[in-house]
Amino acid sequence: MERTFGGTALFLDRSDINTDEIIPARYLTEVTKDALKPYLLEDLLLDGFDPQGPALQQASVIVTRRNFGCGSSREHAPWALEVNGIHTVIAESYARIFRQNMFNCGMLAIELPAADLERLFALQTAGEVQVSVDLAAQRVVACAGDQKFECGFEISPFDKALVQAGGWVEFADQRY
């Protein structure tokens, strides 16, 4: 299974967004991923962001700053993204467990250098940003209005293999 990655981007302009903000602990009593759908980012306090608003509903990509997904190890965080159709996050850096959870689920946690990320954020002024990701070529293309941004990204061969395999369970099952 190889997913396609990309779509409308939602910009969360803050560092250190933690997994309690992505999915609060009160929903950890759910035992299915689908049940998490309405609660994504419910506790995130950020100017201009509305967890019930259309911007989140339309988003397929999250673009954010440093250390995204810090705190609790809960894989409910990537699941809450997944069941909302968000399979790609682009950030300057991640917390280790969250980053691994994304790849383990066959989703993409793309790291961009600060300067590239800044250009991507700047694109918002031109209108709604559409992102497309070419995993094989390791390139991100983003368009808004008549403006375009393009850059390469680094991903470890292991993480790339996980995404291409559809996740860690599939990969490990074939190999161990």
Binding site: S73, N104, V169, D173
Partner: peptide, 29 residues
């Protein structure tokens, strides 16, 4: 599957918190 698994390093172990998929593979393999 708990971020504070690092606690067990107090005994000189390499102990790391992981997500549910890592836990699942750990249980199985």
């Amino acid at each position: 599957g708990d971020s504070h698994t690092c606690t067990h390093g107090a005994f000189g172990a390499f102990a790391a918190g992981v997500g549910t998929t890592d836990l699942e593979v750990g249980i199985l393999k």
